[in-house]
């Protein structure tokens, strides 16, 4: 074998190398990225929610007159007008089983004008903190003096019968009312009072939460330091989100009837933060679940961590 026989072999090898390392990559592109099969869908923004149709002011309406004793001992009366269409629409709305969602009743947009008007009439804007406080207490006393009636009583409803969407539960019937329903019925139980009071206070700009006990519902109102000179009790408050929410009772229900042959329940006004006179053991010593009215569920973890790219990556 001569050198002339080896040279073609070497040349052939070189040609193969050049084709494999230079020509092919130049033709297919470098790096050769396989085209993925599926196509990445684009972000689809949500469709806007339809605006709520306002209920007409004219037309049939329920008019109710309320009479209550204010913080100064004076007896006051006020009138509330609720459109019939709004009331019937509420009655035909199914109730939420989850109590954590009941704040939606207090903030119902359709009830807002009625609540804002009523709240401002009972608690006119004060020129100083004392007037503000008296206004607030008047509003609380107003709601507390709405007669208590349990959900399973047909007397709790102007129709004299349980509403279609009253839900049977383990201990009886559950029917949380929209504020407008409580005003038209003129009666309600603890959750109805708490919801109504939350709606009224919210309309005035107070920051409130619902306090859920196993057998009761009340309200929490945000206050920064509350030490009334008259109080013979330690005002009870709960921390939520670094804020203090003081206990507010929505009913005057005190347990038992005024006399053996009377259907009227005993009651008394409860000042802010007073849980020592409560008739529920859970209120006296328990810690409620706090339901914020103005809150959007959010994850605690949502930050995407950028990953370092491999050398040679784009």
């Amino acid at each position: 074998m001569e050198w002339k026989d080896i040279i073609p072999v070497l040349a052939g090898g070189l040609v193969i190398l050049v084709v494999a390392l230079v020509v092919k990559p130049a033709l297919v592109g470098e790096p050769a990225v396989a085209t993925p099969g599926p196509v990445l869908p684009a972000y689809v923004p949500p469709a806007p929610l339809p605006a709520a149709t306002p209920f007409p002011e004219v037309g049939a309406a329920h008019t109710r007159t309320f009479r209550w004793t204010a913080i100064d001992g004076g007896v006051h009366t006020t009138e509330v007008r609720v459109p019939e269409a709004l009331f019937l629409a509420h009655r035909e709305t199914p109730r939420f089983a989850d109590r954590l969602a009941w704040g939606r009743y207090a903030l119902a947009e359709e009830d807002r004008p009625i609540l804002a008007d009523l709240a401002r009439r009972i608690a006119p804007a004060g020129g100083n903190p004392e007037e503000e406080y008296f206004g607030l207490m008047n509003l609380i006393f107003f709601v507390q003096q709405i007669p208590y009636e349990p959900d399973n009583s047909t007397d709790s409803y102007i129709e004299g019968a349980l509403p279609r969407h009253a839900r049977p539960v383990k201990d009886g019937i559950e029917y949380p009312k929209y504020p407008a329903e409580t005003l038209v019925d003129g009666k309600g139980d603890c959750e109805d009072s708490a919801i109504l009071l939350a709606g009224l206070l919210d309309a005035l700009g107070y920051d409130t939460v619902l306090l859920l006990y196993p057998d009761h519902m009340a309200l929490g109102i945000r206050m920064d330091g509350f030490h009334p000179y008259y109080a013979k009790y330690t005002p009870k408050y709960f921390d939520y989100g670094g804020k203090h929410y003081y206990y507010v009772e929505g009913t005057t229900y005190y347990g038992g009837k005024v006399s053996a042959d009377s259907p009227v329940l005993r009651g008394k006004p409860f000042p802010i933060g007073d849980t020592e006179d409560a008739s529920f053991g859970s209120v006296k010593s328990g810690t409620p679940e706090i339901v914020p009215l103005h809150s959007i569920p959010a994850p605690a973890e949502y930050r995407i961590r950028p990953a370092r790219l491999p050398a040679g990556g784009a």
């Binding site: 790096p31 396989a34 950028p306 050398a311 040679g312 990556g313 784009a314």
Partner: peptide
């Protein structure tokens, strides 16, 4: 191998770019 790493890196980069948009 270089080509495989480059392709993998390109895919990770594309993923990170899309995740940045999500973020």
């Amino acid at each position: 191998e270089d080509r495989q790493v480059a392709a993998f890196g390109g895919h990770v980069a594309a993923s990170e770019a899309d995740l940045a948009r999500v973020s």
